[in-house]
Design a protein around this nucleic acid. Sequence first.
DNA 1: GTTGCCATGTAAACTGTTACATGATTTC
DNA 2: GAAATCATGTAACAGTTTACATGGCAAC
Lengths: 187, 187
Amino acid sequence: MSKKQTSPTDLDFAILGLLHQQAETGYGIRKIFETTALGNYSSSPGSIYPALKRLQKLNLVVQENQLTESGANKSRFLPTPIGTKMLIEWMSQPIVPEDISKSIEQLFLRFAFMDNHLSRAQKLDFLLSFNEQVKTYLTELEAYYQQEADNLPLHGRLAFEHGIATYRTHLKWGKKALVTLQQTKDK
Amino acid sequence: MSKKQTSPTDLDFAILGLLHQQAETGYGIRKIFETTALGNYSSSPGSIYPALKRLQKLNLVVQENQLTESGANKSRFLPTPIGTKMLIEWMSQPIVPEDISKSIEQLFLRFAFMDNHLSRAQKLDFLLSFNEQVKTYLTELEAYYQQEADNLPLHGRLAFEHGIATYRTHLKWGKKALVTLQQTKDK
DNA sequence: GTTGCCATGTAAACTGTTACATGATTTC
DNA sequence: GAAATCATGTAACAGTTTACATGGCAAC
């Protein structure tokens, strides 16, 4: 009855999401994180293999056993129904203000995996909430800037301006993505 | 003769940089990381206090002893000459491609602290190199996008577009910052 | 006089990094 | 047949998170 496991990490969800698009070996996952920009996530064996073990222990993925005649290793990982449920739950979480200020990258990761697993309405809701909350945060940032810009040293001010520009880009992207989804035929 | 310490972490440098602008208590540093956007860095006591201990052990900061009559605690941390030298070294490192793709936030942190510690030429060099390398990386991203966009699911494609938009913003900022610095009178 | 914030720390658990290690398969 | 790459893992270590713990001071 001991419930010991903490909830999966971002890396775990990144792997789980990838496996929903395409079954992969551990090595295959490593290569994806190494080569594609998608994710500042680590591709080292010391992070990937332990992550896969965690996912297996939680019954979120299984290893297909496809033994090559000569010895060895080619077995890929597949999501389980529980894994799919978990991924959907993770993507469906409401966006909270701290997501915007502290872990916005996670939101893009969640968005990237939504394709086949959430309804059109859920996807639109996600973007609506995203845009609203980015706008709120941006307004705060800009107000703070107006107040403090004169007191900041030049480089501090420029770095701050970069932060503002980045959030403006997030919002601009969110609006464009929303329009794109709205124009997409339902189903 | 045992040389055991690894080099300071990003958090260590963030703290060291802050202390060059203003002496602070541990608590003060925590509040800065909590409240200001500057940094996705952790503000938990379990990260800040050990970081300050590391910095002290390396002789990069010292604690002023300013005892309040009644008991206790108000002592702030100050950078040492060695700390200043270390900060300057860290800011002066050449930018490598992996900085752009994997840890670009660190570059903005380095930039934010340059004000009083690097020469005008060094600052300009930093931005020139930044812009050049962001441009190179952006070109790669765009080429990859052209090739792969049609194969990507809609959400994956939109997420990718976000990545490209973000790097375009980095470059635009870099160009503007360069112009700003160039227009600034040299001392 | 009690609530809340200032202020500092520690301990356990967990993640990730770095480096090492092994062997199979493919390519030249 | 040698070199590169596929493929999987482990061990030591360092850093962060979360939770706990303590006490002073300020405000109401």
